[in-house]
Amino acid sequence: QQIVSPDMLIKHPLQNRWAMWFFKNDKSKEWTANLKLITAFDTVEDFWGLYNHIQKASRLPSGCDYSLFKDGIQPMWEDASNKNGGRWLVNLNKNQRQTELDNFWLETLLCLIGEAFDDLTDDICGATINIRNKGDKLGLWTRDARRGDATLQIGKKLKERLKIPQKIGIGFQAHSDTATKAGSTARDRYRV
């Protein structure tokens, strides 16, 4: 018999329990019916068990989303935890689906489960990757759009972890602005 280190047997707990969601755009159904909970997890090993098992985001058909949110928060503006918040938005061009998208999404997931936002963890709700032929989008969702300093720190950390060049700015949009926008994009409340 082999002696196995306890480290190989004990799963590593996460600070938060996280839920992975999948959205597939079936126009014959209501939006909410297209949003499905895949599973929730609260250990590092269970995260990898899930991530290693599901399709890479770049291989999803256009119109699909993955979302990772704290357990109990639904990946929609209307959720009580999201309605006063917003998202840092990273817009990808068509080339980046093959070169950057999976890396960006994995890095974002690692930020979430690893608690990369330190004391600002309570401001974090989750993240979503939207696969769209007109341009893929990665969003990091926060709880309260009025918390300027916290929001800016979160944006800077995201940009740093994704290794987005300094000269490329990313914007933060409040969900309330996105929900009521007249044009195709909401205004940026903050930029880094």
């Binding site: 090993e45 690692l110 690893g114 330190d118």
Partner: peptide, 18 residues
């Protein structure tokens, strides 16, 4: 209180955990 966080490198090491 205490908070559990993981460095990126550690999370990546766990990827192939049985």
């Amino acid at each position: 209180g205490t908070r559990i966080f993981y460095e990126r490198a550690f999370l990546m090491q766990c990827r192939e955990s049985p």
